[in-house]
Design a protein around this nucleic acid. Structure first.
Lengths: 242, 242
DNA sequence: ATGGTCCAATGGTCCAACCAATTTCTGCAC
DNA sequence: GTGCAGAAATTGGTTGGACCATTGGACCAT
């Protein structure tokens, strides 16, 4: 017998019930990300639970990044919610060491290549125009600053993830982006970090515009490879462990 | 001016401070997963904060899967913690609908192929033997049950992720496994769901044993393709939306 | 317009108590 | 002594009420 057929009963689950009610509220009110939730006091009164219970529920959602609380202002929705949401709380020991960054890059390589390929398959003309716009901005920033601008670079890649049609790509990479961002600003002592990756942004775009999934995948892999090289050069310079 | 040069100041962060102190405690006591944390009341007293604040902090950790609370018993550590942890709270609108499962598969395709390739590069003889053992068990289960056994199948793939040398693969896929598991037991009305994927498990293993990254990647892609086919067949049968 | 002051709303913290589940102890029967 | 039922202590869960800190808008003086 599958032990899943007899799940443990839940005798008390006030805060979970609160969250369920909140999901209902968000849907009933068609609340969009950025919208404001009822105040804690109102929720407590309406749901007939203590304000503390409401707070515990909201704390959970806050930890999951679904909601943002601003003292003196209110509680705001940060992401879309649905009744059958699944939360994947990944917690990984992330450091600034070479190994962690390399591992992050391996994940990014896998996802970036796949996303680029899917993007090339599915992009509409409007999508392609949007990506080109982001590319132009990035290239402009590159010339102005004489180097990679992490902000504009990120926007470009994000556009590709979005157009891939699979929101999971954007979510996973966005979550890891913070980890990556940390060291992006401190290029391990390597001058011109990311310079080598610059030309591949355009080649990726061209493959997408040409609806060439295989090419897009190949160019994406090349781009990641240049970043890996930069990383290795930095590691060698700092004599970090491999 | 770079807007990062004036980051918002942090005036109060009691519960965050509690978590930081808790990290220190875990490390000082060399607390292992499964170990028991101090009582909420004791923590409140020691840290000179209200029990409510302690509870908010623990609620966050609980939501992140780091800790488990058992009423009447205590609070127990569920995973290792470190000062520089990174949390990726992925929330995906995951249902049993065709679209969600297909998107999950696209992620799995990206990661599975990369992991198989890395595994083929890095596997030690002992690793290879371990994977073969898992493969034998899976094949045995297949013959006995006359069908795929999700449990043994999962163990096989997990072994590959582990040997890939990058713990992120295992963590991400493991988190998504629950989503996949849901419908794995209810194969959308498709008889012999997963049957077609069976032979590729051995071909993947053989490529790994032969230290053939390209082959391993190719076979992994074939395996996922068969699952996608099964999924599409099920969707067509159930007239689900694409 | 600009800046300052006040004030109501809102999240953050605290306290003291009680409830509910669990564990531990106690004492009785055998 | 052993075993077990019930009491007692422990521990997380909930409640209600209070106060603090921050926010943002209204109002006012310059």
């Amino acid at each position: 017998m599958d032990q899943n057929s007899l799940p443990p009963i839940q005798t008390t689950a006030r805060d979970d019930a609160v969250l369920k009610a909140l999901v209902g509220f968000v849907r009933a009110e068609a609340l969009q990300p950025g919208g404001r939730l009822p105040t804690e006091r109102i929720l407590a009164e309406r749901l007939k639970v203590s304000r503390n219970t409401v707070r515990e529920a909201l704390t959970r959602w806050e930890g999951l990044g679904l909601v943002e609380r601003r003292q003196g202002s209110g509680t705001y929705l940060k992401a879309a919610v649905s009744p059958d949401m699944l939360h994947l709380p990944l917690t990984l020991a992330g450091g600034n060491d070479f190994t962690s960054l390399m591992q992050t890059l391996e994940i990014r390589r896998a996802l970036e290549a796949e996303a680029a390929a899917l993007c090339a398959e599915r992009a509409s003309p409007a999508n392609i125009a949007e990506i080109e716009r982001k590319l132009d901005i990035m290239e402009q920033a590159f010339r102005t600053l004489d180097g990679m601008s992490s902000e504009e670079d990120w926007e470009f890649h994000q556009a590709i993830y979005r157009v891939s049609g699979n929101p999971l790509f954007e979510q996973i990479i966005a979550a890891m982006h913070e980890l990556f961002h940390r060291f992006w600003e401190h290029p391990l002592g390597v001058r011109d970090f990311g310079h080598a990756s610059f030309p591949y942004h355009r080649t990726i775009y061209e493959c997408i515009a040409a609806r060439d999934p295989r090419g897009a995948r190949a160019e994406a892999l090349k781009l990641i490879a240049t970043v890996e090289d930069d990383l290795k050069r930095g590691a060698a310079k700092l004599k970090l462990r491999t």
